[in-house]
Design a protein around this nucleic acid. Structure first.
Lengths: 238, 238
DNA sequence: ACAAAAGTGTTCCGCATACACCCATGC
DNA sequence: GCATGGGTGTATGCGGAACACTTTTGT
């Protein structure tokens, strides 16, 4: 273990929201360690100290790639967290020193958000790395200031989606029903939307293309499938 | 000079926008140094490497305070810049090493924005520190990636003002005319607004209090003064 | 009298909201 | 035939955008 560095370490943390078709989840890593009160186990956001000469964005993409095998997604820096207090919990300090193999004065983190679709492959992959998709309502006390990071990330995502809804369609299958999109809205914003008003807006969007195909074998009237046309979207948005 | 640190240095840079009653300016520091091509002189944003155990926000406030003597203002972190390329210019590397008295691998900066009113005291104070209020349209090539920082800061400020106009009133005298506020809008957003529509909205705001006092000795019809009532504003905005 | 800026109303359009009933399908 | 969710229209209000003339004051 090296001696204490006077200079701050910089990390990236990723708040990766995943949509499994029904609910919005957040990807968390199980952290276990030894503290004065014995062994503990809690959760943290995936993150990493940045490498030398590594772009911040690159570091975030690296963390995400190492954890999920996914690239080329909607990944955005949204804030830095740099209070010295964020590592004041003894448990956090000990854990960090073990992880980085160095005494830590403090650590500043640059936080990123991502929105991805949870597919079957991803479920298995994440589990292999002790990463878990957790319901947003069920996350407890996270390591460091990660509760605050998640909160900030969710607010950021809501704002972003409002000004550019492209990210939503990455979370849905290529062919999706209006109800699927509506449900996605509801879980992201945490509130019900009016079905008819949503419909009116939905059909007015020229980049939502209705398909001939409909649902099969559902116990009610079959819903039409639609697709998102990115090219049309880009044309009409600068 | 110490040996190269493998760990990144972290700085804060402040994009401080000032309003002098007519135009929007940005506070820049003159930087001079020696390079292969001889002495040079250019401009940079005020900034500083953060101290050990110093909160990021505190560091930003410290820089601002040291430079302007001003506290308790609208100061917001808005993005971090961490590309290793941002210090690729040889001039920037040499300058940094002289400033920090240490070899620099890379430096990550957390950028802040502030909006302040340029009063008479502030003009003198800034000049004493080789800081200058520059017209936004007249800034040339800045040090590091500071052009990008300024650009990002301005966009951020515009967004923020749209959702919370409180910051605007910090830039105006306590008593101000409708035209002064309108001009402020125009310089922040860089476009003309319709006078009558602006007026309609202006008088509909319950936190803008009309005063009996009017302009004196103007070569045209005297305009009424108004004041901003922060208490009323806060009551009607959560 | 003229220059210069203050002050003011109407119309139109698009967008958000509120709200309820019939339709198709599988069981 | 019934349960389940799919699919649809109308009326209302608010806020933004366009647009021009009269008033006041100093010179």
């Amino acid at each position: 273990m090296q001696e204490t560095s006077l200079y701050p370490h910089v990390s990236v943390d990723c708040a990766i929201f995943g949509f499994d078709g029904e609910q919005l989840k957040i990807l968390l890593i199980t952290r276990t360690g030894e503290s004065e009160e014995g062994r503990y186990s809690d959760m943290k956001l995936p993150g990493s100290v940045i490498y030398e000469s590594e772009n911040l964005d690159d570091a975030a993409y690296r963390v995400l790639y190492e954890l999920t095998g996914i690239k080329n997604i909607y990944l955005q820096q949204f804030r830095s967290f740099g209070s010295p207090d964020r590592t004041k919990h003894p448990r956090d300090i000990v854990w960090l020193e073990n992880a980085i193999h160095m005494k830590i004065g403090r650590i500043i983190t640059v936080a990123y958000v991502a929105l991805i679709k949870i597919n079957q492959k991803l479920r298995g992959f994440a589990d292999g790395y002790e990463a878990h998709w957790c319901n947003l309502s069920e996350i407890g006390q996270l390591a460091f200031d990660h509760n605050e990071v998640v909160e900030g990330a969710l607010n950021y995502v809501r704002k972003k989606i409002e000004e550019d809804p492209t990210g939503m369609y990455e979370l849905l299958p290529k062919k999706f029903t209006e109800a699927e999109l509506r449900n996605l809205h509801e879980v992201i914003f945490g509130e019900k939307v009016d079905i008819r008003n949503f419909h009116k807006k939905f059909i007015s969007l020229n980049y939502i293309i209705p398909l001939e195909e409909k649902q099969q074998n559902v116990a009610h009237r079959a819903a039409r499938y639609y697709r998102f046309d990115k090219i049309i979207y880009n044309k009409s948005h600068r």
